[in-house]
Design a protein around this nucleic acid. Structure first.
Lengths: 189, 189, 189, 189
DNA sequence: AATGAATGAGCATTCATTCAT
DNA sequence: GATGAATGAATGCTCATTCAT
């Protein structure tokens, strides 16, 4: 580590985030990243082994957060806790989270949103099903739970994408949760 | 030789739909389309100026429906009518609709889902706002209407993507509408 | 197969042979081959899947000959028959043989000369050893058999590399065999 | 700081020898050499102008020996003396000799083995020709002398490459010389 | 004297598009 | 009308070499 190194690394990471955000992993161009970072293409490869590695470097911290979440399933399995976890990650890694969710086709993270959704669905179903059975409500097609989980998560990320200020974000997510889950069981009647 | 021409044209369109559905506009391969259509690659370019044009040809009818919907907004501005329109389009142009929604990255239709959402949002907002104001309910951030519209539309397409049988589809969409809009105003209180 | 095709293919093969002969597989440049063949680089890949495939196309026939030779070991195991086989191949595939022998580093054929040498050594040893034992001659280091086989084969290819006319080639190889093998057993005494 | 400089220089040379021995001039990596020598890559270029120069530095002494041999040809023209010279060089510069012979593709020494062979051939021819003419033996194609020289030298280096112990090496070379040159003239009859 | 970050030409390969036949 | 051979710009990546520190 000599002069500049970290600054250059950061510049590359920043431009890579822009590029992957714009064009996704598959179409993001290493040359474009290098040019925009004001760095020769060869130099990028001093900092990152290859395109996949550069992508991973951006996105791995976010992924690790979710692995940890899955490990602690027992304790935090309530839907609200999942949402809190996501928001926690969001605070620190906004762009990275949006990249792993929207732009990771072609990488090992490609199914991240799907996994996240399945995880959320499971939690949702586990909390809702007993309630509904108690009330004698029959759910004809359980795929609806997946739809709820998926659209809710979509809504969450929509807010994140748009969000610039924390108070507004909190309000929107709070509102979203009310809209989605307040008296949710009654709406199945 | 108009008949022959149309037959070839249709074969190309059909294989293009499969290819774009599978791999999206950006990754869909003209060569693959030509091969699967049993047509020389050069001949594809007699029927369609280029890849974008071929894509447009597939997707434009769906887009036109949407444009018409926008033009007639006075008459069909209720949210339910929008949903009905989408379902109408869906019946005739299922694959095309899913392509324009999911696989149009890299084309001028890339923002279709967004536009559709904005349109739906407007309608939703127009029907909801007066109701809420009557009740003296204040909505701090109207972006929430966009979120509702977007997630609902997401849910709709989720069901379409999954759907194989009409009865199940209808049930799921019915359920979805109840979950999203039943007593929606109360959930803002 | 339309106009020109075979002619172009041959031109590519010919220039590839020159290039691989000059610079070996690893350093031979596809661009150079394309340029010298008067063909766009992309077009080369219509005829050959990749560099390795182009190399194989050149060299595989020669390799097949030797596989056949190994299969028929029982019948043609005498050293002279091996030489005859090599010469047979040489007549048809001179450059190809020299390429597989000298320029195949980086391909699956890289150990071809070594294998050929081992094969020749085995045959030589099997014919020589009994003779020597009969005469009570002790060979302190059997590596000498490998050296004989290897240098002889080297000599063979040297002649091939130089050879332009068949009569001269035949004479040289005849002479080489006399020099190497005439009274070879006596020279161990 | 001459002492320090020489120590570094030697370390570079040593690691370069290993690298060129392993991977040849063309594939040998300056970075690897620098790393293994525990020296910054830039510093290598203070000691050696470029890769070729570093290679030359390793190999030049051996080449000089050969040049001296050529200059003194009047005195040392007998074939045996050439072999002795090679073995002399071998003792001091084993690795360097094997490098210049086997790994110099891409450098000005690429044809070293050929030159050496030509030199040996000349000497061989000069000693053999009169003998043969005396006996009235006609050699149809004098290229055979080149072949003998070349294969013999090949054998020599084969033994050197394999050799680990001096006694075995001496025995093998002795055996080789008998096999190649004992009654060589008779084998032309 | 020494460092290692930076450079950029080079590589094999892909693919939308063109055009001679 | 139709063919598919030909084009060449673009991709990810490597590595000898340079140069600011």
């Amino acid at each position: 580590m000599q002069y500049l190194k970290n600054e250059v690394r950061n510049r590359i990471i920043m431009e890579a985030m822009k590029e992957f955000q714009d064009r996704g992993f598959l179409h993001g161009s290493m040359r474009t990243i290098a040019n925009n970072a004001g760095v020769a293409i060869g130099n990028v490869y001093r900092y990152f082994k290859n395109k996949e590695d550069l992508f991973n470097e951006i996105v791995e911290p976010v992924y690790q957060c979710f692995l940890r979440m899955e490990v602690h399933k027992q304790e935090i399995c309530s839907f609200e806790e999942i949402v809190n976890s996501i928001m926690e990650v969001m605070k620190e890694y906004k762009i990275q989270l949006l990249i792993i969710v929207d732009k990771s086709k072609g990488t090992k993270y490609a199914r991240f949103k799907e996994e996240l959704t399945k995880f959320a669905e499971k939690s949702l179903r586990e909390s809702l099903w007993p309630e509904l059975q108690e009330k004698g409500i029959e759910v004809k097609d359980p795929f609806i739970f997946y739809v709820i989980a998926s659209t809710f998560i979509e809504g969450l990320f929509l807010i994140f994408r748009k969000a610039e200020e924390e108070v507004a974000t909190r309000y929107l997510i709070h509102q979203l949760m009310i809209l989605f889950f307040d008296n949710l069981d009654k709406r199945f009647e």
